[in-house]
Each structure stands twice: as structure tokens, then as C-alpha cells.
């Protein structure tokens, strides 16, 4: 089943809970400006590996690791925007 854009954000929130073990209330309170990398202790470079693979599986996208730079995980909004852009490809 293809993902409609507004379910992408929900999926990303679920991913942050499932992969990083962040409290659901913390994730529910995130807005586009909420910083991620450097602000969430759970999100280190090793956790990013698992997060990317789960994003691929759940959103049915392919992520080329060359596309990934530091800005991707800068904020909740940048991560959602990246996922939405990948789905359109």
C-alpha cells in the first residue's frame, strides 16, 4: 500500500519510538523545529544505521547512503522532509 504524505510523519514518529526507545510522549511533542542529532542522546551514528533501514522497510523507499549528510537528522522536520522527498522519487 503506497504511503500518503501525512502518514509519513506518523511513521517517522513511530520509528523514533521503536528504534531509539524514546518515550512516546517526547516524540508526540516534537515539531518541525525540534532538534534531533546532538539533542537526543539515543541518536548516535550507530543508531542511525538501524533507523535508515527501518525507514526503507516501513516507507518502501530506497535510501542511497551518498544522499545522507549531517543535515538530514538535524531536526524532526528535516527528517520528515527527506522521507517525503524519497517517496516522491
Amino acid at each position: 500500500m503506497p504511503f500518503v504524505p501525512d502518514s509519513v510523519e506518523t511513521t517517522i514518529r513511530e520509528l523514533l519510538v521503536d528504534v531509539l526507545g524514546v518515550a512516546p510522549a517526547t516524540v508526540a511533542a516534537m515539531t518541525d523545529d525540534t532538534p534531533l542529532f546532538g539533542a537526543l542522546p539515543e541518536l548516535d551514528s550507530m543508531a542511525v544505521a538501524g533507523l535508515l533501514t527501518e525507514m526503507e522497510d516501513r516507507l518502501e523507499i530506497m535510501i542511497d547512503d551518498d544522499d545522507i549528510d549531517g543535515d538530514l537528522f538535524e531536526s524532526f522536520g528535516s527528517l520528515v522532509a527527506f522521507a517525503k522527498a524519497k517517496i516522491k522519487e
Binding site: M46, A49, E56, D65
Partner: peptide, 11 residues
């Protein structure tokens, strides 16, 4: 495999 490869690359 992909997750392990990404972990290696990140390390």
C-alpha cells in the same frame, strides 16, 4: 546486511 554495512561505514 544493510544495517550492518551502515554501522560499519558509520564506525
Amino acid at each position: 546486511l544493510k544495517t550492518m554495512i551502515r554501522t560499519r561505514i558509520a564506525g
